[in-house]
Every structure is written in structure tokens, then in C-alpha cells.
């Protein structure tokens, strides 16, 4: 809950909201605004969303309902390396569930969680459109194709060694 009218939103987001308020159906831009906010901040905080609600004049309950309905919105910070496992049909058929299991075991976290050291987050996507390379895993958008469960530990250590992270 915010008990004040203090501004904590980024100026460019405030500007965006102001612009939306001049258009028809300003409240319909809520999702767009949340997208921009997530892009800017990495994830959505309650404090930010309370302010969005006030400025856009949309009930905070609506903002909370919307932000938790859509899985694209993150309400928690992400790890330095976002590991995204494709759980599309083709990848499943080629054993994506085993890959997921391997990551779970290796990292000790579940889907949607981040390791305690803040390094890795486990996420999923549904079909990247490269089904021929299934099963596919992306780590910070770098694509790894035809992954096997055995490769998982190596993949993680290589990532740590080679990738700068976000």
C-alpha cells in the first residue's frame, strides 16, 4: 500500500501515461504501460503499479488483477541468467520434460523461481518456432538446440564462464 502521493515512477512512464490520457479509452493502455514498465524496471513492483493506477485512474484492484493474469508480467526480479525451456509440443515430444527436470535438479529451483544467489531463473516458453531443433533452451536469448539432460550441468558452467549476463 502506498500512503503517500509521492512519485516513484520513471519520468518516461509518466509521460507515456499522460499521453494515453489524451487518447480515447485511456484505461485500455494499461497493458501497454505495464509492458513498458517491465521493460524499464525488469519487473513490476506493487508501488509502481499503485502509482500507475492513480495516474491512469484505473482501480488498483484492476491493475493487480491484470498484472497477475498475464504470465508475461514478472512480479519478482529475474536472475542474471534467464533460462527458458521450450515446452512447446515439438520440444515436449523430443523430451523437454526431461530437460526441465535436469535443470530443476541442478539448480534446486522450480519453474518461475530464481536461485538464491540471484544467478539463474527458470522460465518456460511455448514454441520458439524452431521445432526442428527441439528440444530448445534459451539462456538470455542465446539458443541452445537439441539439448540433452546430460548437457545441462555443462551448459550451466559454460554460461557462467562465458556469458556476461544481463
Amino acid at each position: 500500500m502506498t500512503n503517500s502521493t509521492q512519485t516513484i515512477l520513471y519520468p518516461e512512464i509518466i509521460e507515456l501515461i499522460e499521453e494515453c490520457l489524451t487518447k480515447d479509452h485511456p484505461e485500455s493502455y494499461l497493458i501497454c504501460i505495464l509492458h513498458k514498465l517491465q521493460e524499464r524496471h525488469g519487473y513490476l513492483t506493487q508501488e509502481h503499479m499503485y502509482e500507475v493506477a492513480q495516474r491512469l485512474q484505473v482501480p488498483a484492484s484492476v491493475v493487480s488483477g491484470v498484472s497477475t493474469f498475464y504470465h508475461f508480467f514478472r512480479l519478482k526480479p529475474r536472475g542474471r541468467y534467464a533460462i527458458s525451456i521450450c515446452l512447446g509440443t515439438a520440444c515436449f515430444v523430443k523430451g523437454a520434460d526431461k530437460i526441465l527436470e535436469a535443470f530443476r535438479k541442478e539448480l534446486g529451483i522450480d519453474m518461475g523461481e530464481t536461485t538464491k544467489d540471484g544467478l539463474f531463473s527458470l522460465e518456460n516458453t511455448r514454441c520458439l518456432g524452431v521445432c526442428g531443433l527441439a528440444p530448445v533452451v534459451t539462456i538470455n536469448n542465446k539458443v541452445h538446440s537439441r539439448v540433452t539432460p546430460q548437457q545441462v550441468p555443462d551448459l550451466l558452467s559454460r554460461t557462467l564462464a562465458e556469458e556476461p549476463g544481463r
Partner: peptide, 8 residues
Amino acid sequence: IRLGAGAF
């Protein structure tokens, strides 16, 4: 353009 946000 309006964007979806991860809901089938």
C-alpha cells in the same frame, strides 16, 4: 498494435 502478455 496491442500486445498480448502471455495468455493463450
